[in-house]
């Protein structure tokens, strides 16, 4: 090991890559829009074909920004969970947030057919789905928080989160067993995840949630660093364990819960990005890791979304599958090459 190096160059490089990915993501899609026109429109110029202009500003750009928010937020909450539980396998959903959201969505889509009297919810659209998913993840998170106040051991919390996940998954299974094919398909589509279909106002709401979540985790940076030694040491360094645990959980709840509500349960990013980040930024200092995972997550999500669009064709692949298909081999390759899991 040499001297501690400055990561400024890496950050500048990563940021440039992010801008590049953003440009690539916006330039490609089902409809072929010439690059020149894309950039003219981006920088406020007028282009002849107004429908291109419409596609760019009302579909591609919001989608690209959603991808950035989703990627950054999930990656950050993954980092938070890995440090809180000091477990490299932890991800944003270990506290049952995505299973809670799934339960909410499943109840809305499939439950309405079971309890036909309650068809007040008859209107199943993106907004009601987002609301149902947020309520679901919030309720599960609340249950985990109540349990968290009773158990002293953070590791027990990890198991409890997993158990809540199992319970909700079981309920979803029961629901899917009794529901009809059409509703089941609708639910499955939701569970594929999607970063499209967000209006500018929804995007603003998501941005607000992510900013609050990120601020909460920035405040926790110091205690996160101390937690790397273990809880007893952290406490001996003046960390208020209970308070910092709640802050981290609430931050994760906002980030992962908000994202799942708007974009569905998107797998893998939260688990993998912190590991990918540590390969470049070989440090445990959260002041460096935190901004790094934010940028890294955004890049990975933009790339995955670009691929999922299948540029030039009218088909769109489920983003949830792409994140894993592209991401998992990268992580395996990195670990095999380095032969060491740095954590």
């Amino acid at each position: 090991m040499g001297k501690p190096k400055s990561y400024r160059l890496s950050f500048i490089f990563l940021f440039l890559v992010l801008l590049l990915c953003l440009a690539v993501n916006i330039s490609f899609g089902s409809v072929n829009i010439p690059l020149a026109d894309t950039f003219t429109s981006l920088f406020g110029g007028a282009i002849e074909n107004t429908s291109w202009d419409y596609i760019l500003w009302n579909y591609r750009i919001p989608k690209a920004f959603t991808a950035v928010l989703v990627g950054s937020g999930l990656a950050l909450s993954g980092l938070l969970m890995q440090t809180l539980f000091r477990n490299p396998l932890a991800g944003p959903f270990v506290l049952g947030i995505s299973s809670g959201a799934s339960l909410g969505a499943a109840l809305l889509i499939m439950g309405s057919s079971l309890f036909s009297g309650l068809s007040v919810f008859g209107l199943i659209n993106d907004i009601s789905l987002a609301i149902a998913a947020s309520i679901g993840s919030f309720l599960v998170l609340l249950a985990v928080m109540i349990v968290a106040s009773r158990v002293k051991d953070t590791m027990a919390l990890l198991i409890i989160g997993l158990m809540f996940g199992s319970i909700t998954a079981a309920i979803v299974s029961v629901l899917s067993y009794f529901t009809d094919a059409e509703k089941l398909q609708q639910y499955v589509y939701w569970s594929f995840g999607s970063v499209g279909n967000l209006s500018w106002s929804q995007l603003t709401l998501l941005l607000t949630i992510i900013v609050i979540g990120t601020l909460l985790s920035v405040v926790s940076i110091k205690s996160l660093n101390a937690l790397l030694l273990g809880e007893n040491y952290a406490q001996s360094l003046g960390v208020n364990l209970k308070k910092s645990r709640y802050t981290v959980i609430i931050s994760t709840g906002l980030l992962a819960g908000g994202i799942t509500a708007f974009a569905g349960p998107i797998a893998f990013i939260g688990l993998a990005v912190p590991h990918l980040t540590r390969q470049i930024f070989n440090t445990t200092e959260h002041r460096i890791l935190l901004p790094a995972v934010l940028i890294y997550g955004a890049i990975l999500m933009l790339l995955c979304d670009t691929v999922a669009q299948l540029p030039g064709s009218a088909n769109v692949l489920p983003i949830n599958a792409i994140t894993s298909i592209l991401g998992a081999p990268v992580v395996i390759w990195l670990l095999v090459r380095k032969r060491k899991m740095v954590f």
Binding site: G230, L237, G238, R287
Partner: peptide
């Protein structure tokens, strides 16, 4: 006696964590 949870920090970083009670909000 318990081992530290993450050993991926340098000795200097480890020792620096000892200053946490005195540093500002971001360390």
């Amino acid at each position: 006696t318990e081992p530290i949870a993450s050993k991926n920090m340098t000795v200097e970083e480890l020792v620096a964590l000892g200053r946490q009670p005195y540093t500002n909000w971001i360390g």
